[in-house]
């Protein structure tokens, strides 16, 4: 078995090598890929869309349609994990641990029990509970707000510097995941509930798609932001720039929400009680 597999892999490698003599050299400015379509983007992005970052203008405008589906892919993945893993009604009540705050005694409730999530005297704790994680919690507390701020900057500044909805959305999601890792899953739910995450992810893609649809209602082709000029003010070129910004916000929202919801479902295996 192993030799057959090895031979298959070698055959694939040999097949890949077969084409290499014709590959253009690394960084060759005369390579065909660099001469046909892409120069148009570089030379016309400013006059077409007023966006200096060519990656952003190609991503959200020239090939904006791909990006809409890319956002849909990630939405589908979030929903897929939810559907595959989520346990809505656990058949057997899981064991839960509570800590009596004044005395530090831990209560273990094996079954049932109607003790609320948390009260002044009792707090619910994870099965692997670290009593003093001051440094982790404090550091996370310091980092999270700045990370979120930075994420918003990355989304908003995608027109002029590397960045955009995906990158910003991922950073924002990572900030929330950092919070969930350093505190616990339940306190993250109080900030961003599962339901809100799903709604945000659907709403994010919906912003993208309905912006495109609006262009259609205004008489243009789907996603032709230029036709939004009467609504957004300014000329069609600036309308494209604003249109790109609107869809980037939608992308950022969707990516952030899906990242968090993926974490919720994967880290707790769908039970939504305790994470990593």
């Amino acid at each position: 078995m192993k030799t057959i597999a090895l031979l298959t892999v070698l055959a694939i490698g040999a097949f890949l090598l077969y084409g290499t003599p014709e590959f253009p050299a690394w960084g060759d400015p005369q390579a065909p890929a660099a001469l046909h379509v892409s120069p148009y983007y570089i030379e016309h992005t400013i006059e077409d869309t007023a966006v200096p970052n060519v990656v952003t203008s190609v991503l959200a405008d020239y090939r904006g349609y791909d990006t809409m589906f890319e956002t849909s892919v990630i939405f589908a993945a979030g929903l897929a994990c939810l559907m595959l893993l989520r346990r809505y009604q656990p058949k057997t009540q899981e064991t839960r641990l509570y800590r009596h705050v004044p005395t530090g005694i831990t209560l273990r409730i094996a079954q049932g029990g109607k003790i609320p999530e948390a009260s002044d005297e009792f707090e619910r704790i994870d099965s692997q509970w670290v009593p003093y994680d001051l440094i982790v919690k404090l550091t996370a507390r310091l980092i999270v707000p700045f990370a979120q701020l930075f994420a918003l900057y990355v989304i908003a500044h995608g027109h002029h510097s590397p960045g955009g909805g995906f990158q910003g959305g991922v950073i924002y999601g990572a900030a929330l995941i950092l919070y969930a890792v350093s505190f616990d899953l339940r306190s993250t739910f109080r900030r961003l509930s599962e339901r809100t995450a799903i709604l945000l992810s659907a709403a994010g893609v919906l912003i993208y798609a309905s912006t495109g649809f609006l262009c259609m209602l205004m008489g243009g082709n789907f996603l032709d932001y230029g036709y939004l000029a009467p609504l957004l003010g300014g000329d069609p070129v600036m309308a494209r720039s604003h249109g790109i910004f609107i869809v980037e916000i939608g992308v950022g929202m969707a990516v952030m929400a899906v990242m968090v919801s993926l974490y919720y479902n994967l880290a707790s295996a769908g039970r939504h009680d305790e994470g990593l």
């Binding site: 890929a33 892409s38 983007y41 990656v55 791909d66 890319e70 956002t71 892919v73 993945a77 995906f166």
Partner: peptide
């Protein structure tokens, strides 16, 4: 060339998904 970067942003998202 910006185009491959754009395409791969999509492919990265797909591979995460």
């Amino acid at each position: 060339n910006p185009l491959p970067h754009v395409l791969m942003l999509t492919a990265i998202v797909v591979s995460v998904a």
